[in-house]
């Protein structure tokens, strides 16, 4: 009897652990007259990895860029619907997109370190947000970010050499470290491994897997193997709509929609 109760409590706690940090309700995105997303509703669980897959132009990157309002910087882009982050609509009038982007970090397709030193690359975010009170704190943030990104061993002797001098995989991990330095809750990754070789990809994937302990990660990928390897949840986009979303394992083994089946088995896309 007692044991059963404990099991129930645990189950409830696990339910808590899988609380939804982002709730998307009926989001439409337009680029001018062109509708890129149609009635997208998707929940993102906290501290898990969610993959967004789908053929090119299906709207998965557009969706990703809605979450930190990077679409605001695109001329003629209009977002309708609600995206709730911890229950607050991020498109609401009281939300500052600059602060939002500090909370929702982003890693891009092509590694894009600033042409500055490795140290300055990571210190930039904390500096503009005033996260470090003094030089020592800043040093600490830089070092822990590098450590979390698994880059510290490779670069600790050359923190003040240029970030663009690193290899592609190292640059991408530097970009991840840079995103971590502003202490985000969520990290968006837009095909972070598409410009990397398999070895660098493996390292980045390993890193992403470690990061899910403390961060919620949403990753757009063209590689279905990658989605299957690293993510717990997967959403399949097609022509601006979510066709199917759910547990990665289920989606890849027994998809309920024909189009998902077709895409993951390589018949189209």
């Amino acid at each position: 009897m007692q044991i059963q109760q404990i099991d129930e409590q645990q189950a409830a706690r696990q339910g808590d652990a899988a609380e939804m940090i982002i709730k998307t309700r009926d989001v439409d995105v337009f680029y001018g007259d062109n509708q890129a997303l149609k009635h997208v509703s998707l929940d993102i669980p906290k501290h898990q990895i969610t993959s967004l897959i789908g053929p090119s132009g299906c709207g998965k990157s557009t969706y990703l860029r809605c979450i930190n309002r990077m679409n605001d910087t695109v001329d003629g882009c209009r977002v309708e619907g609600e995206i709730l982050l911890d229950g607050v609509n991020i498109y609401g009038p009281e939300v500052d997109e600059v602060l939002l982007r500090a909370r929702v970090g982003m890693v891009f397709q092509k590694p894009n370190p600033f042409p500055k030193s490795i140290y300055d690359n990571i210190a930039y975010g904390p500096r503009i947000h005033g996260l470090a009170a003094n030089k020592d704190e800043l040093d600490e943030i830089v070092l822990t970010s590098l450590e979390k990104a698994g880059l510290i061993k490779e670069v600790q002797d050359r923190l003040h050499s240029s970030g663009t001098g690193l290899s592609g995989g190292q640059q991408q991990r530097l970009c991840i470290a840079r995103a971590l330095a502003v202490r985000p809750d969520i990290i968006l990754m837009d095909e972070p491994c598409s410009a990397l070789d398999p070895i660098a990809t493996a390292k980045v994937e390993e890193l992403i897997d470690e990061l899910k302990e403390n961060y919620t990660i949403i990753i757009v990928t063209h590689s279905m193997q990658q989605a299957a390897r690293i993510s717990q949840k997967t959403a399949f986009f097609h022509l601006g709509e979510i066709v199917e979303a759910g547990d990665t394992e289920k989606l890849f083994t027994s998809p309920s929609d024909e189009r998902t089946q077709g895409y993951i088995t390589g018949r189209f896309g």
Binding site: V98, L99, A102, M106, N112, F114, Y124, I128, V182
Partner: peptide
């Protein structure tokens, strides 16, 4: 390149920054 602007904006820099 635009990627530099995006990197800065993505970190929460304002447009002016």
């Amino acid at each position: 390149p635009d990627s530099i602007r995006q990197a800065a904006l993505g970190l929460g820099a304002s447009k002016q920054q």
